[in-house]
Design a protein around this nucleic acid. Structure first.
Lengths: 222, 222
DNA sequence: GTTTTCATGTAACCCGTTACATGATTCA
DNA sequence: TGAATCATGTAACGGGTTACATGAAAAC
């Protein structure tokens, strides 16, 4: 019952749901796939994995595998400890997925939640996106009033910092607007979901993302 | 010698350099002026203040002031403990200001450093801005390669998250480019600095910010 | 055969928050 | 007079990192 990190636990369960992995690989996935937002060290990850095993959500499969299936087949090289999600773990993860409480739209949590939107039902997606948006909007409100009160007493750099900060938040709000609109647009369409889970897949279909693929042009004017 | 937070210490010294304050007010300033980036609690601030006093960088002035000058005159209401920067503290802060080590351009530090650019000499400003920029550029590089490697294995949401993340970083790089250019432009001009310090003011002149005042229009299309 | 990368862990520490305890001042 | 805000503090805990210790497999 010790180490409960919330976000790390969530991410680990989510990644292991796709396929079993050992700690080292897991960490790399955490720091790229879910990247930008968070980088966990081994000192955090390994104890967390042990705790999840203790909870019955994961099982360890060592090289001299008790269940046949040598880990070699999975990774191409001998892996020490492969972690696999148990049915209980899967159930637990899906329960976490279905929650959309206020903490789900805080800075740290939101990124991870979004990363697993593919697994998330559409109504939960909507609640998280809208929650996040209103969170940012109230933050903007605060910044605006506080700026209005102190405007003239601040030097140019502080002001510029404030301005840039607000613009960043505004930009994220616009992003959320687009996403929410896409979700709304894809509401009644029921397109076929690309990667359907075998069982207990509670996610609806993939909604509709802006579909602007290709990821930010390499050379933006400069 | 205990509690050394770095960023909090820096911000506290910087704010107190402008004028003496008590803890409560200090915290509000921390969470607005330097806002967006960080919000400290009393549980962090007060112990830090004590430590700074123990270091000889601050002095406490209680209501029954030993130095005359009742705190009432400063705030309009009776304040309990007013903290004032000592000469040693000022000296220390200016030394901190002059450093531009690699940690100065990490996410957490950069914001605070920038907030006190008004007090910072131009060459240090330049080094910090350029350091920050190259830091972001190498991060972009990593993201690009990692994205290229895993592109097709990721679902749309993860991809969109990645894309948005990269765009955010690219945007900050462009911002830095503008700032750096402004600094370069204001290099030989020697405009009069708006708020000159009485003594030991090592900051050159204010350089030149984009001068686009007015802080982000209230209604951006939506 | 040595270096690099893969792979797993632990103990000490750091920075910060939460929740609590306390009390003065202002305002309705 | 009672509620809200101002104001100062502390102890317990939380979540994470760093540095270290260890060793196997791959690459050169």
């Amino acid at each position: 019952m010790s180490r409960r990190s919330g976000i790390l636990e969530f991410a680990v369960l989510g990644l292991l749901r796709e396929s079993p992995m050992h700690g080292y690989e897991l960490r790399k996935r955490l720091n790229t796939s879910l990247g930008v937002f968070r980088a966990f060290s081994y000192g955090t990850l390994y104890p967390c994995l042990k705790a999840l095993v203790a909870n019955g959500w994961l099982v360890e499969e060592t090289s001299g595998a008790p269940d046949g299936v040598p880990a070699t087949a999975l990774t191409g090289r001998r892996a020490k400890i492969v972690y696999r999600l148990t049915p209980a773990g899967k159930e637990h993860f899906e329960e976490l997925l279905s929650h959309s409480g206020p903490d789900a739209w805080e800075d740290e949590h939101f990124g991870v939640r979004f990363a697993f939107f593919g697994q998330t039902s559409r109504d939960v997606r909507m609640r998280v996106l809208e929650g996040r948006r209103s969170r940012l909007e109230e933050r903007l409100e605060k910044m605006r009033t506080s700026l209005a009160r102190t405007r003239e007493r601040l030097d140019d750099y502080t002001l510029e910092l404030q301005r840039h900060g607000m613009e960043s938040v505004e930009r994220e709000v616009r992003w959320l607007n687009e996403l929410i609109e896409s979700e709304r647009a894809g509401r009644e369409q029921r397109t076929s979901d690309p990667a359907a889970q075998d069982e207990s897949n509670q996610s609806g279909d993939a909604g509709g993302l802006p579909r602007r693929r290709g990821g930010s042009r390499p050379d933006p004017s400069e």
